[in-house]
Structures are given as C-alpha cells and as structure tokens.
Simulated assay, not measured.
Amino acid sequence: MAARVITDDAEAVAVAAALADEFRAGASERDTERRLPRTELDRLSASGLLAVTVPAEHGGADVGAETLAEVFRLLGSADGSLAQIPQSHFAYVNVIRRQGTAEQQKFFFAELLAGRRFGNAQSEAGTKHVQDIRTRLTPQADGSYVLSGVKHYSTGALFADWIPVLARAEDDNLHVAFVPRDAAGLTVVDDWDGMGQRTTASGTVHLDDVPVPADRVLPHHLTFEGPQLHGALAQLLHAAIDAGIAVGALAQAAEFVRTKSRPWFESGVETAAEDPLLIQRFGELALQVRASEALLREAARAVDAARADLTDDTAAEASIAVAAAKVQAANTAVDVAGALFEVSGTRSALDSLNLHRHWRDARTHTLHDPTRWKIQHIGRYVLNGTKPPRHGLL
C-alpha cells in the first residue's frame, strides 16, 4: 500500500476536511445497508492520516493533540461510525511511543507510514469489570509467547493489519501484544449488532494459542507507573467524535428545516426557517455545539502542554480538561441529535430518511464509559485537589 506522508498539522487538517466531505456523501447509505467501509478505510490509509503522530525522527509529522482532535471532529461530523474505527489505532500508536524499544518503534512507525492499520482487542465480556482482563500471554521456552482469550467490542480488528491485544503475562501485569491480522489461531467475527455505529464491525476476536514473538510484546503496565497521557489522549478522541456527531446532526437539522419543513400555521411566516421559535431553538443548540468545540480545543491544548512538560500536575490538568470536554460533548451529541426531530417535525421521523443515525451513533458511542464518573473526578479535583487516577480511562 502506497501512502501519502503528511508533513505538518495544517496539511493533516486539510486532508481530514477533504476526506470528511468525501465520506459524508455515503454515510447514511452505508449505515442503512450496514455496508462496511473498507473502501473508505483504504482511502484513510492512503491519505497518510493514520501516521500523523509518528515522531519526526522517524519521518512523521508528529502532530499535536489539538490537530488530532480536529481530525476526529471532522471525521465524526461526516460519519460517526467511520470516525470511531481509528480511535484505538492512535491509542496504540501512543503505547509504542511510550513503551516501545528502539527496534519496535523503528518497525512499527515504518508500518504506519506505509498506511498500515491497527485494530483493537481490548475489552472482554462477562468479567467482573472493564479492567478485569483475563486474556493470557503464556511464555514459551524460546522466549516467545502464546496468546489465548476472547475479546469483544473489537473496533477496527476486522479491517486491521495489526491487532493490538491487551493481555496479562505470567506476573499478571498488563501487556500489549501486536498480532498480525492473519496470524494462526486468530479469528475476527463480524457479530456487532449495535443500534448505532453499525459499520464499525466492533465484533469478537478469538485467540486460540496464537504465537507471538517476544519483540511484538510491550509492557503496557509501565505506562501507568508515572505521569501519563495515555488515557487523556484516548478520551480526547472520543470527545472529538461526540463533538463531530453533534456538528453533523445540527447541520442536517438546519438543512432539513430550510429545504423540507413547513412553518407552523400560528407563526405567520412563509417558511420554517423564519419561525422565531425555531430560530431560538437553533441558537440554543448552536451554543451547546460551540461549547463542546471550545472545551475540546482547551482540552487538546492541555494535553499538548502536558506532553511538553509532563509532571503529575500537568498530567492531572490534562485529564481533568479532557474529562470536562468529554462530558460536554457526550451530552451535546445526544441532545442535538435528538433535537433534530423536534425542530424538523413529523416527516423527519420517516425511517427512509435515516435521520436517526445521528442519535443512534451518539447514544451508542457515549456508552463507551460513564460521564458520571468523570464528573466525580472533576469535583474531587476542584474541591479537594485530588488528582485523577492513572487507569487509562480518564
């Protein structure tokens, strides 16, 4: 696969904006037919966007969090499913930056620059809680490992070249094993049937004694032994997707009202777009969207600032800023996507129009992790100065 090499932040945003316009056109049809976006993901790989966080010394643009968040916001405004697929890709690029050896970094960064995609095999179903990981890496006599377990909600795995698998080694510490998509013993099942984000193919990964060389395993547990931005960056991208879904829903609502809605007879106006009550409601919704975008930018800048001077204090500031952005964006995405019907009227509920895809995508994506716990950590930090925990979900 020949991939473009993006050289700076401005180019990354411009490429993302162009791709978002391209992807927007078929988003509703892909959702309706549950047509998986293989062609679109190949376009994403070829565009060079998947390598924009590769460090400069390895030939990448090494863009900041603010740029990466804007890339995801733009993609999310076009297609809430498609934007979700590379989220874990960038989270695991960050693992390589943080914990990879020089040789591992050299190999995987070259893979990224060539357009290769990382998937995700992280979550497990039926365990005590989300961090109760039972997939095992069993050491072999030659220093390699055998990987066994079952993973669920494995977004991106079906389309991946490499699947990062979160597993416990013999010492029970968490590691990430990077496994080729075609590895012996690895099966990806397209059994995702969520009401929203229908085309993420977030299905099940079966790992049946998958052989893993020692140099494909990274000690992820070390990420959390000091100040870290792993969780902040991953959550920032989730917030950006939510902010993007809200932008897309508001734009589609405005287009529908301008072109298809009738004015309420009591309004005394000729078009729905002149209705003062609708104008008021659109203003309120726009304020929510703008607040989400502003908090997203502020959070991204906090992550960039912490990356430049990483301490317990700067990492805490970044995590809290991201938590605030995530809460606001999640609430806004659900609210605006629901209000689309309120402002558009009865016709907008026709299933054939598929306007509900925005709400379904928002409602599904915002279930990823509970905002109530983010609010708790914000409150503890503001009231008592309690720094947020280092568990990768904040």
Rank of each mutant, 00 (worst) to 15 (best):
T127M: 15
S154R: 06
I133E: 11
A114D: 15
I163Q: 01
K128V: 06
T127Y: 09
W162E: 02
E124Q: 01
R134I: 13
A141N: 10
K151I: 00
G119F: 07
L158D: 07
Q140E: 04
G126T: 00
L147F: 03
F118G: 15
R117A: 12
G149F: 10
H129P: 05
G119T: 11
F118L: 15
G156I: 05
N120I: 01
Q131W: 09
I133Q: 07
R117N: 10
S144V: 02
E124M: 01
Q122F: 14
G115Y: 05
V146W: 06
Q140S: 02
N120E: 03
Y153E: 04
L158K: 08
A160L: 10
V165L: 12
V150I: 03
Q140R: 08
G149D: 07
P164E: 09
A160W: 10
D161S: 11
D142P: 08
F118Q: 05
V165D: 06
R117C: 07
D142I: 01
R116P: 07
I163A: 10
G119Y: 10
E124V: 00
R134S: 10
V165H: 07
G156Q: 05
Q140K: 05
T127E: 15
I133K: 08
S148E: 01
D132M: 14
L137Y: 00
V150W: 04
A160T: 03
D132Q: 11
L158T: 04
T135W: 04
S154T: 00
G149T: 03
A157I: 02
F118C: 04
G149A: 08
A160Q: 12
G115W: 14
D161T: 13
V150T: 13
A121P: 09
V130W: 14
G115D: 02
I133D: 09
R136Y: 07
T138D: 00
F159P: 10
F159M: 06
Y145N: 02
V165G: 12
V165I: 13
K151L: 01
T127W: 06
F118I: 08
L147A: 04
A160S: 13
Y153I: 04
G126N: 03
K151Y: 00
P164I: 15
S144R: 12
S123K: 04
H129I: 03
H129G: 05
F118T: 08
R134L: 13
R136G: 10
D132P: 12
T135H: 04
R134G: 09
T138P: 00
I133R: 07
A114H: 14
D161R: 04
R116W: 06
A114Y: 09
V130C: 03
P164D: 14
R134A: 13
G126K: 08
V165T: 10
A114C: 07
L158M: 11
R116A: 15
T138I: 02
A121F: 12
R117K: 13
H152P: 03
I133M: 08
